[in-house]
Amino acid sequence: MTIEQAVLENFRELPAEKQQEVLDFIQFLKHKLPSKKRRIPPSSIAGKGKTLGDIISPTVNEEEWECLK
């Protein structure tokens, strides 16, 4: 038996008010799902970003790290 079949079988056995609760919960879960929309930057800033340094190496020399002193 699939999950869908099990859910439907159990759903049909519920009284109408409980079926409505299940439907409300399903709609709540669907609303919580992350949006698939891709954000688009405003044209005034699109393409103007700069990478200022290497994302792997630190921006400050290790000699200047206070936690190593």
Results as ranks from 00 to 15, higher is better:
Glu63Pro: 00
Glu13Lys: 13
Leu68Ala: 05
Lys32Gln: 15
Lys32Phe: 02
Glu62Gly: 02
Ile40His: 01
Arg12Ala: 02
Ile26Gly: 10
Glu17Met: 09
Phe11Gln: 12
Phe11Glu: 09
Thr2Lys: 14
Pro41Thr: 13
Met1Phe: 09
Glu17Cys: 05
Arg38Leu: 11
Lys18Phe: 11
Phe28Cys: 01
Asp24Glu: 15
His31Gly: 06
Pro15His: 03
Ala6Cys: 07
Pro15Gly: 08
Ile26Tyr: 11
Leu23Glu: 06
Asn10Gln: 12
Pro42Gln: 12
Leu68Trp: 02
Leu23Tyr: 05
Ile55Cys: 01
Thr2Cys: 06
Val22Ile: 09
Ile26Asp: 03
Leu29Val: 05
Glu9Met: 11
Lys50Ile: 15
Lys50Glu: 09
Thr51Leu: 14
Val22Gln: 04
Glu66Ile: 10
Glu4Pro: 02
Leu29Met: 13
Gln5Ile: 01
Ile26His: 04
Thr59Tyr: 06
Thr2Met: 07
Val60Asn: 12
Ser35Thr: 13
Gln19Arg: 15
Ala16Trp: 10
Glu64Met: 01
Lys36Pro: 02
Lys30Pro: 00
Lys69Asp: 00
Ile40Ser: 07
Lys37Met: 12
Glu64Ser: 04
Phe28Asp: 12
Ile45Val: 14
Ile45Gln: 00
Ile3Gln: 11
Pro42Phe: 11
Cys67Ile: 10
Ala16Val: 15
Leu33Pro: 00
Glu9Gly: 05
Ser43Cys: 03
Asp24Val: 12
Lys69Ser: 06
Glu9Pro: 00
Phe25Thr: 01
Gln19His: 07
Gly53Gln: 04
Gly47Lys: 14
Cys67Trp: 11
Leu14Phe: 05
Thr59Ser: 10
Ala16Glu: 15
Thr2Gly: 13
Leu68Gly: 01
Ile56Val: 14
Pro58Tyr: 03
Arg12Glu: 02
Phe28Val: 06
Gly53Asp: 06
Gly49Lys: 11
Gln27Cys: 04
Lys18Gly: 06
Phe28Gly: 03
Lys36Arg: 13
Ile56Met: 03
Lys50Val: 14
Glu4Thr: 12
Ser43Met: 09
Ser44Val: 15
Glu17Gly: 03
Gly53Met: 11
Ser43Asp: 15
Ile56Cys: 04
Gly49Leu: 15
Arg39Thr: 11
Ser57Ala: 10
Pro15Met: 07
Met1Glu: 03
Ser43Ile: 14
Pro42Met: 13
His31Trp: 11
Met1His: 09
Asn10Met: 08
Ser35Gln: 04
Glu63Trp: 02
Lys37Ile: 13
Lys32Asn: 08
Lys36Asp: 05
Pro15Leu: 07
Ser57Asp: 04
Asn10Leu: 14
Cys67Pro: 00
Lys69Glu: 01
Ile45Lys: 00
Gln5Pro: 00
Leu68Lys: 13
Leu23Phe: 11
Lys48Ile: 12
Glu63Tyr: 03
Ile45Pro: 00
Ile26Gln: 11
Val22Pro: 02
Phe11Ser: 10
Asn61Gly: 05
Leu8Asp: 01
Gly53Ile: 09
Ile40Leu: 10
Lys32Trp: 08
Glu17Asp: 14
Leu29Glu: 14
Pro58Ser: 15
Glu4Cys: 04
Lys32Pro: 00
Lys69Ile: 06
Ser44Cys: 10
Ser57Glu: 03
Ala16His: 07
Asn10Asp: 11
Phe11Gly: 05
Val22His: 04
Ile40Lys: 08
